[in-house]
Design a protein around this nucleic acid. Structure first.
Lengths: 219, 219
DNA sequence: TAGATTGTTAATCGATTAACAATC
DNA sequence: TAGATTGTTAATCGATTAACAATC
C-alpha cells in the first residue's frame, strides 16, 4: 500500500490512463445481470493480460474481493470517479465547421456530463445562426464570454491557421484544459492540460500499416 | 545495417509509427527556404530527444548526412513514402450522421490521396441525398458495391449498435483496413488492419487529467 | 583539416508479465 | 475448509537515451 501510494505520487503512466476509458466502456456495456467479473474475464474480453488489469487498478486502490473478483457495479463506479465523471464540465467550442458541428451535435458527450455552453466562429455568415440549440457567437466576444462564464474545457475545431492564436487567447482567458482537433501541435503554458485528436495522423498510421503489411499481423 | 534489418523484421514499434505522422506534419509546415534540419533542431521543435528521432528514422534507412543533418525535402519525401502517401487510397464511408458528414467534407484527406468513393447509410430519409458530391447509398447495397468496386479502406461512423454488424459485413466483402469511429472495440479477422478513433475516450482522458491535476504538470 | 552531426551500440529507464503469498 | 482470485513483488521485456566511433 505504501509503495503504491509512492507510485501514485510519481504520476500515473500514460498507458494506464489510456486504458481506463476502455475498462469503463466495457463495464458500462455489460448486461445488468452480470454481477461479477474477474481480471481474467475482463482481460480476455479486452485482449490484455489479467495482471495488467490488476496492476492498473492498483494505482487507485483495492476494488476487488479476494477469491471472488470484482463487483461490476462497484468497479464501474470507482472507475467513473477516477475518471472524474461524477461531476459536470462546462465546455466552449471554437470553430463551427463540419467537425465542430459534429461534436456539438454528438449526444454522448452531454450524457457523460460534458455540456457545451457556447460556440464561437469567425465567419460572419455563420455567426448568429443556431447549432445544437445554441446561437453561434463571434470569436471577438470570446474573452468577454469566458470572463463572465469561466469554463472547464475549450474544444478547438478551427482550421490550423487559426488554432495557435485561439489557443493563446483562451489560455490568457484562464482556460485550464484544451481538446485540440486542429492538425497542429499547440503550445500551451504548462499548467494547461492539452489533449490532441489528430484525425489525419490516425489515417496516416492506417496507410503506413497498409503499406508495410506483408507478413505482419495485428492481434 | 544488418541489425537494423533484423529490427525491421521484428516489426516497427507502435510508438515509432505514431511519431512518423508528426515528423511528416512538422516538415510539411516548414518554409520552403529551410533546406536543412538536424535531429537536434527537430527534437527541440517536437519536444523530444534528438536520439529518439535518429533511432526512429534508422528503422527505415539512413536519410541524413554525417556532419550536416537532413535535407528537409528529401527527408519529407522519404517519410511520405514510408507512410504510403505516394499512392491513392479508395475509401467507403459507412454512416452519414454528423461525424460521417464531417469526415466526408474534410478536404485534407482527399489532398493526401484518400478518396471517398461511396457513402452508405441505413436511414431512408438520408439515402439518395447528396453529400460531398456523392449520392448516399443504401446500406443494403454495400456488398454489391464492394464487389464491383474493391476499396482500400472502410470508415465506420455508424452508431455503436450497428458497427460490429457492419464491420463483419465489410470484412466478409474483402475490406483489408478499417478506420472505426464508433465507441466499440470491433472484432476483426487478424489479416484486417484496424485503427480506432474513440472521441469519447479522449475526452475521458482529459477529464481524468483535470480531476487528478494537483501538483502534476504535463510538458 | 577541424567541426559537426549522423547512425548505432550499450546503458538506463519504465512498463508488462509471471508468480505467489494473502485472504475471502 | 478447499478453491479461487486478488494485490503486489520480482523477473522480464521493450523502449528511450546517452555516448561515441564513423564520416561528411
Amino acid at each position: 500500500m505504501t509503495i503504491r501510494k509512492q507510485r501514485r505520487k510519481e504520476g500515473i503512466p500514460r498507458g494506464v490512463i489510456s486504458r481506463l476509458p476502455k475498462y469503463y466502456r466495457y463495464l458500462s456495456g455489460l448486461s445488468q445481470a452480470q454481477e461479477k467479473i474477474s481480471s481474467a474475464e475482463l482481460g480476455k474480453a479486452l485482449n490484455m493480460t489479467a495482471a495488467q488489469i490488476r496492476s492498473d487498478l492498483s494505482y487507485f486502490g483495492s476494488f476487488g474481493l479476494h477469491g471472488y473478483g470484482y463487483r461490476v457495479d462497484e468497479l464501474k463506479n470507482h472507475i467513473s470517479a477516477i475518471l472524474g465523471l461524477d461531476r459536470e464540465y462546462s465546455l466552449v467550442l471554437i470553430g463551427a465547421g463540419n467537425l465542430g458541428r459534429a461534436i456539438a451535435s454528438y449526444p454522448n458527450f452531454r450524457k457523460r456530463g460534458f455540456i457545451i455552453k457556447a460556440i464561437f466562429d469567425a465567419d460572419p455568415e455563420v455567426i448568429g445562426t443556431e447549432l445544437a440549440g445554441l446561437t453561434i457567437r463571434s470569436i471577438d466576444t470570446l474573452e468577454d464570454y469566458l470572463q463572465a462564464n469561466p469554463c472547464d474545457i475549450a474544444v478547438i475545431t478551427t482550421p490550423k491557421e487559426a488554432s495557435q492564436a485561439v489557443c493563446d487567447r483562451i489560455c490568457r482567458a484562464g482556460i485550464k484544459a484544451i481538446w485540440n482537433f486542429s492538425p497542429l501541435d499547440l503550445r500551451v503554458p504548462n499548467d494547461v492540460i492539452l489533449e490532441h485528436t489528430h484525425l489525419t495522423d490516425s489515417l496516416l498510421q492506417l496507410s503506413f500499416q497498409i503499406t508495410n503489411n506483408e507478413t505482419e499481423k495485428s492481434s
